[in-house]
Each structure stands twice: as structure tokens, then as C-alpha cells.
Design a protein around this nucleic acid. Structure first.
Length: 244
DNA sequence: CTAATGGCGACTTTGGGCAC
DNA sequence: GTGCCCAAAGTCGCCATTAG
């Protein structure tokens, strides 16, 4: 059974690959896009540093907390000896600029004119939620906001509400390429062990592209079915692929 | 039903004080 | 100077609730 991320990996090469990320029985090509080739075959659950705290929330809620619910953690010993011996790299200037640009653009989006979310936006959000992460970082939220043309606040609220409704599935604590804390779906880590802003952006663009393309495909099929004959494959829909 | 808001608790970060 | 302890402030996510 293929996951949506596997299917996503096919997107660039399979022109009419199945769009529905929930169609796990899809028979699309197994050939992955070079962009989405797994970066490391040695997938290792870098579990839960003791502080993967909110994971303790999750596990307690999912019934797998062995210590009982909401047990207080021992107080931090000293701030000079961090509990996570991770290497916190500095984001590159390019990354900082990119993040700032995304935040600026995201904060400029009007939240009233585009509510509620349309099918396309919902599908992209659900795919990220189901297949990549329930807890996107701020830059990722901004990226989704820009691509989906929804405000940062709307994207945040959507994920918050979705977590309330659909708290299921595993979450694995890990870190980004610059050492920032990240909680991903296991399938996402199988796809790429070390996620970065740019990798997420690539994946998100592919999800968005597939969604829009399939929407257009569906629309065209409806037109064909209704007219019975001619199919004017869309001049319409091109507005969906907005400039990014 | 979805989107949004605010209160709350858990956790992290920061910085001062103290002993060695 | 270094290491430890502690409290305050900040951050994050959950939850209940409300509005449309």
C-alpha cells in the first residue's frame, strides 16, 4: 500500500497519476521524482527526547502514555546544559530572507475574503496534516498561507481545529536541517529523514499542483459528460495556478 | 459544520543570586 | 569563572465555547 507521499513522488513523472492522496490503492507509477527521492535509507526513529513534551500530551491522549497523564517533568537543571544535545545551526541568510519574505506575504493576505476554505485548499491542508505533520512550524505555516492564499492565522486555526477533531496517528519528534524541533508523521520521515524549509516547499508545491491539476481534470470530465461530445480542455482553471 | 477566540496548563527560555 | 538553583516571562498546544 502506497502512502500519499509515495504517490506525490510520482507526480512529476506521471502525467495522469491519481490525485487523491487518500487513494492508497492507486496504481500510479512507482518511479519517484528525483526531487523526492528518499535522502537516507537508514530511517531511525529519533524518538522522543525526554522533552518531546507535547508528545507526552499526544501519547497520553492516544492511550500509550505509560507514566500516566500529565505527569510533571522534573525541573530543568540548568539552562547552560541543554537537555537536547542537538546541534543548533544558524539558518543561512538566504533562509532568513526567504522566511521573512514568506511571513511578509502571508501577513498581507486578507482573512475575510477567502473563507471558508475551498476544496483545493482543504485537500492540500489535509494531505499535509495526514501525511507530513500535525504541527507545522511557523515558516511552513507561512508557506502554506502564501501558496493557498489564506492568512497565517487561518492556517494556524485550521491545524488547531483539525488536531481537535482528528487526533490520530503517530508523531515522531525530530529536527530540521538547522536543528529546529519538528514533529512529523512517520511516513514523512520515511520519505526524507532531514526535512528543511526548501524540501517542504517542494513537497507542498507538488501537492498543490496535483490537486489543482486533478480538479481541472475532474471539471473537464464533467464538461465532457454533460456535453457528450466536445471537450474544451480548460482555458479555465489557469487562474488556479497563481504565480508563486 | 467550520472558523475563530480566549483561558488555561505544561513546558522552555532567560537572567539573577548563590556557593565553590 | 563556573555550575547550580530558582522564579518570572514567554511560548505552545489543548480545550471549551461562540459566531456565522
Amino acid at each position: 500500500m502506497k502512502s500519499s507521499l509515495d504517490l506525490l513522488a510520482d507526480a512529476a513523472t506521471s502525467p495522469l497519476a491519481s490525485y487523491d492522496s487518500h487513494d492508497y490503492n492507486s496504481s500510479s507509477s512507482p518511479t519517484p521524482s528525483p526531487v523526492l527521492l528518499r535522502r537516507s535509507p537508514h530511517y531511525n526513529y529519533r524518538d522522543a527526547s525526554p522533552s518531546a513534551s507535547s508528545c507526552s500530551h499526544q501519547s497520553s491522549e492516544s492511550g500509550s502514555n505509560t507514566n500516566g497523564a500529565h505527569q510533571l517533568r522534573p525541573r530543568k537543571k540548568a539552562h547552560k546544559s541543554p537537555k537536547h544535545p542537538r546541534v543548533q545551526l544558524k539558518p543561512s541568510p538566504e533562509m532568513k530572507m526567504r522566511r521573512k519574505e514568506l511571513m511578509d506575504r502571508a501577513s498581507g493576505i486578507d482573512s475575510l475574503s477567502n473563507s471558508p476554505a475551498n476544496d483545493c485548499q482543504l485537500h492540500v491542508l489535509r494531505t499535509v496534516f495526514d501525511e507530513i505533520t500535525m504541527y507545522p512550524t511557523e515558516p511552513w505555516l507561512a508557506l502554506m498561507a502564501v501558496i493557498l492564499r489564506r492568512s497565517l492565522r487561518q492556517i494556524k486555526n485550521w491545524f488547531s481545529n483539525e488536531r481537535q477533531k482528528n487526533r490520530w496517528g503517530d508523531v515522531v519528534s525530530t529536527f530540521t536541517d538547522v536543528g529546529e524541533r519538528l514533529r512529523l508523521r512517520p511516513a514523512a520521515i520515511e520519505l526524507c529523514e532531514l526535512w528543511s524549509d526548501s524540501f517542504f516547499e517542494e513537497v507542498l508545491m507538488i501537492i498543490n499542483f496535483r490537486t489543482i491539476r486533478h480538479q481541472r481534470w475532474d471539471r473537464c470530465k464533467i464538461i465532457v459528460d454533460e456535453s457528450g461530445s466536445d471537450s474544451s480542455l480548460g482555458e479555465d482553471g489557469s487562474d488556479d495556478l497563481h504565480e508563486f
